[in-house]
Amino acid sequence: MRYFAVFVLVLLASVPYTLGPGVEQSLVTLFSLVAMATWWNLLAGFAGLTSFGQQAYLGVGAYGLYVLALAGVDPFAAIPLAAALAGVVALPVSVAVLRLSGGQFAVATWVLAEIFRLAVTLSPGGDTGVSLPGISGYMPLLRQALVYWCALGLAAGSVLAVWLLARGRYGLAARAVSADPDAAAASGVRVARIRRVAYCLAAAGAGAVGALLFTHTLYVQPGSIFNVQYSVLMMFMVLTGGLGTVEGPVAGALIFFVLQQALSAHGPWYLVLLGAVGVAVTLFAPRGLWGHLGRPLFPIAHLRET
């Protein structure tokens, strides 16, 4: 299995030499979806927190990258820095939002994303977007390949990181918190800490995706990057794929990607379908596609009660 995963990765990494920019363009989108879904799943699937505000950290990542690039840091080298920035910003925020849970947590994180958006629009230029500085020196083909490799690395790294977290002690504790916070606390799990770690890591992950998207689109606008639509996508992918599994978000991202490619010509109908499928899956198949059909490729099962 692991050899197969490595083989697939090598194959994907060679795409810029074999298939070229047209394919890269689509795959960058797919990889950023995989990373987004994977980090949202760490929050919702493992720590039991549904956030509708992860776009806040997409924005922090993107605008963090802008500030760093403006200061002369190479945009690609600045992606990890922007991610770290998002994680750091999330730490004080978590004190406020983690007082809540369920629907209240969801809406509070959404409000938070609005606060971040409005704060960004206070800078000169307001709601008008900014262009990524420091990119014009790159040859177009090389820039695209770099974006592609960063996206691939981010997606693979995110899945690996969440898998390692989920199969370790942290994962066990997180799932206990997710299943029943009070019981977990009674058995000595430090609930607040578990949730805080998940929140900050998920924020850093979203920050990395935001920064990556910026290197891809080259232009970022507060209204776009802080849009709640990103949370819609994350939720849909994780739900359909399988909440609380490592493979689920990847499967969900693939499903969404295929739907988007196949149906986007039909305009908003595919989003209607998306919402309806999300509702149906939550009500009738809460373990998602992978939970019902798939075999765990990245087993965390030795820690999961079956």
């Binding site: 549904t50 629907g103 939720m235 209607v272 919402g275 999300g278 509702v279």
Partner: peptide, 23 residues
């Protein structure tokens, strides 16, 4: 269905309504 389900269901409903209105 627990704490998450109502949030996810109503959010899904919101997506459906918005896009039905768009169409």
């Amino acid at each position: 269905g627990g704490e998450l389900a109502p949030v996810l269901v109503t959010f899904g409903l919101s997506v459906v309504i918005q896009n039905l209105l768009v169409t």
